[in-house]
Simulated assay, not measured.
Amino acid sequence: MHARAVAASTSALLGTAALLFPVSPAAAAPGTGTAPLVIAHRGASAYAPENTLAAVDKAAELGIGWVENDVQRTRDGALVVLHDDNLRRTTDAEEVFPGRAPWKVKDFTAAEIARLDAGSWFGPAYAGARVPTLEQFVHRVERHHQKLLLEIKNPELYPGIEQQTLKVLSNEGWLDRAHLEGRLIMQSFSAGSVRTVHELKPGVKTGFLGTPRVADLSVYAGFTDQINPSYSTLSRAYVSSVQALDGPHGRPLEVFTWTVDEAATAQRVAGYGVDGIITNRPDAVREAVGG
């Protein structure tokens, strides 16, 4: 996830309330008695190449139960796990396909993407790592008995990706009762995409990535279970405003904030009462907040 610019009205709303409150290293969400969940952003991406199976394995090695990923679609309709809408930053696409600029994911087939090295950019120990398909990724998450926070990336580029993602998840056994009740959340920066997921499969827990105005939260509560903002936009007052509303499943809206890598920041947002913290360094954040 990239930090998105916050609307001026939202900034004004949050600015006066964004006070810093020191908290203890084992900060629990106020009133819950529990520390926030810790979610490994693109896998344990501080220690292994993001969105690869190696990053899932590293999160499991660290004892992290939740993994976040990003899903996009290839030219021939396969779903692959990759953050950027192009292949340049995290693969060797420029070398393998020098005449295919700007190397957009949607312009390559699944077989072509499967040829790319998605690990060498991170370090020689990961040379030869591949861009996983969504099927491969959920198999690995399942192997480790982990839980998945799945982001539909750039849905405007991939019409119908919500239904397709749900179909893959269904085929892989991820839409049964056990997964829906505690092992799967689907999120997006697109409110329309989140609404579509909710309408297609009401049982799926959903999250909206962003910081809507407090006045608009009741609208979001009709189709999303979470409001998931950048930590830089958060205040205790905003978190409380979100959690005061019930979502579509009759439970209070939750807040998962991103992307928090520093202990002091993790302690601060835990003190605000967030329900989850998305981080590249899940071990460090877990130690900081007791999650």
Rank of each mutant, 00 (worst) to 15 (best):
Ala46His: 11
Ala46Asp: 09
Ala46Ile: 07
Tyr47Asp: 13
Tyr47Glu: 13
Tyr47Ile: 08
Ala48Gln: 09
Ala48His: 06
Pro49Met: 06
Glu50Val: 07
Asn51Ala: 09
Asn51Met: 04
Asn51Lys: 07
Asn51Glu: 06
Thr52Ile: 05
Ala55Ile: 08
Ala55Phe: 05
Ala55Ser: 10
Val56Tyr: 06
Val56Thr: 11
Asp57Ala: 15
Lys58Asn: 03
Lys58His: 05
Lys58Phe: 04
Ala59Pro: 00
Ala59Phe: 00
Ala60Tyr: 08
Ala60Asn: 15
Ala60Asp: 11
Glu61Ser: 08
Glu61Ile: 11
Leu62Thr: 09
Gly63Glu: 05
Ile64Gln: 10
Ile64Gly: 01
Gly65Leu: 15
Gly65Pro: 15
Gly65Tyr: 15
Gly65Thr: 15
Trp66Asp: 01
Trp66Phe: 05
Trp66Pro: 01
Trp66Cys: 06
Val67His: 01
Glu68Lys: 04
Asn69Asp: 13
Asp70Lys: 03
Asp70Gln: 03
Val71Lys: 01
Val71Asn: 00
Val71Glu: 01
Gln72Ile: 01
Gln72Thr: 08
Arg73Trp: 10
Arg73Glu: 14
Arg75His: 13
Arg75Gly: 00
Arg75Phe: 07
Asp76Cys: 03
Asp76Val: 00
Ala78Arg: 12
Leu79Lys: 01
Val80Arg: 03
Val80Leu: 09
Val81Glu: 08
Val81Ala: 02
Val81Met: 08
Val81Leu: 06
Leu82Ile: 13
His83Gly: 11
His83Arg: 11
Asp84Tyr: 03
Asp84Leu: 04
Asp84Ala: 05
Asp84Cys: 02
Asp85Phe: 15
Asn86Ser: 15
Asn86Glu: 14
Leu87Ala: 02
Leu87Asn: 01
Arg88Ala: 14
Arg89Ala: 12
Thr90Asp: 12
Thr90Ile: 14
Thr91Val: 05
Asp92Asn: 13
Asp92Arg: 07
Asp92His: 05
Asp92Leu: 05
Ala93Thr: 06
Ala93Trp: 02
Ala93Lys: 00
Glu94Ala: 15
Glu94Pro: 09
Glu95Val: 15
Glu95Asn: 13
Glu95Met: 14
Val96Leu: 09
Val96Lys: 08
Val96Arg: 07
Phe97Met: 11
Pro98Arg: 02
Pro98Ala: 04
Gly99Thr: 07
Gly99His: 05
Gly99Leu: 06
Arg100His: 12
Arg100Trp: 10
Arg100Cys: 13
Arg100Leu: 11
Pro102Asp: 12
Pro102Arg: 13
Pro102Phe: 10
Trp103Lys: 03
Trp103Ser: 02
Trp103Met: 12
Trp103Pro: 04
Lys104Gly: 12
Lys104Val: 15
Lys104Ser: 14
Lys104Leu: 14
Val105Ala: 02
Val105Asp: 00
Val105Asn: 00
Lys106Gln: 12
Phe108Glu: 07
Thr109Asp: 07
Thr109Asn: 10
Thr109Val: 09
Thr109Ser: 13
